[in-house]
């Protein structure tokens, strides 16, 4: 029997949650023997595979590209895990939500004494009117709050899921910290 497959996806987040995954240090080696990492910013793979057992999502849904991606990922994933506050609550990316997008872009790219006042256009993913946590867009199976969730938490969550159990996340992590 082949090993279960695991993927990690990076949407609108600071990459801190991925760093926290790496923070598992040597435990990562031991853990990685139990699954195949099939898609991740940490591995070189362009296409999200057709079928993945467990996918961890870092970051919120902030652009049309995020939205497209998360729907595709959801369709191809058995157990979807929102990893970290950005994915779970919107967190820092969502702090822009009370500001209309055009105003926000002007604010950032214009009138700040920049040499070239220009809002980046075309070919870049366009921002959604509101940043949303993953579960407002697709169904999420496991929520792991924390900014970032600790390496211990992530280790336990992955181990439990691999063992076919539902991790008791509430006991492990909380919003923020």
């Amino acid at each position: 029997m082949s090993k279960p497959t695991l993927a990690t996806v990076w949407l609108d987040g600071c990459s801190g949650c991925h760093m926290s995954i790496l923070d598992m240090d040597e435990r990562l080696v031991e853990l990685s023997e139990q699954f195949d990492l099939v898609y991740s910013p940490l591995v070189d793979c362009k296409e999200f595979p057709e079928q993945v057992d467990i996918t961890l999502i870092e970051g919120s849904v902030s652009s049309d590209e995020d939205d497209r991606k998360i729907r595709a990922v959801r369709a191809r994933t058995r157990i979807l895990v929102s990893l970290g506050d950005c994915a779970v609550t919107g967190n820092v990316p969502a702090m822009r939500n009370s500001i209309p997008v055009p105003e926000l872009l002007d604010w950032v790219y214009k009138g700040n004494g920049l040499l070239q006042e220009q809002v980046p256009a075309d070919r870049l993913p366009s921002l959604l009117p509101r940043v949303r946590p993953i579960h407002e867009v697709v169904n999420v199976d496991v929520f792991v709050p924390g900014c970032p969730p600790s390496a211990d938490t992530i280790f336990t969550v992955i181990s439990e899921l691999l063992a076919g159990r539902v991790p008791d996340v509430a006991a492990l992590s909380r919003f923020g910290v």
Binding site: S82, D85, V88, T89, N91, V92, A94, M95, N97, S98, P133, H135, V140, F143, V144, P145, C147, V169, A170, S173, R174, F175, G176, V177
Partner: peptide, 27 residues
């Protein structure tokens, strides 16, 4: 707007504590 990670009360907040003790992992 509760953005715990950048809040002055992070990890010492009555609301955050209650969320943890009541198993609120998402909203």
């Amino acid at each position: 707007n509760h953005v715990c990670s950048v809040c002055v009360a992070n990890n010492m907040c009555g609301l955050q504590d209650q969320a943890k003790s009541h198993g609120v992992t998402h909203v």
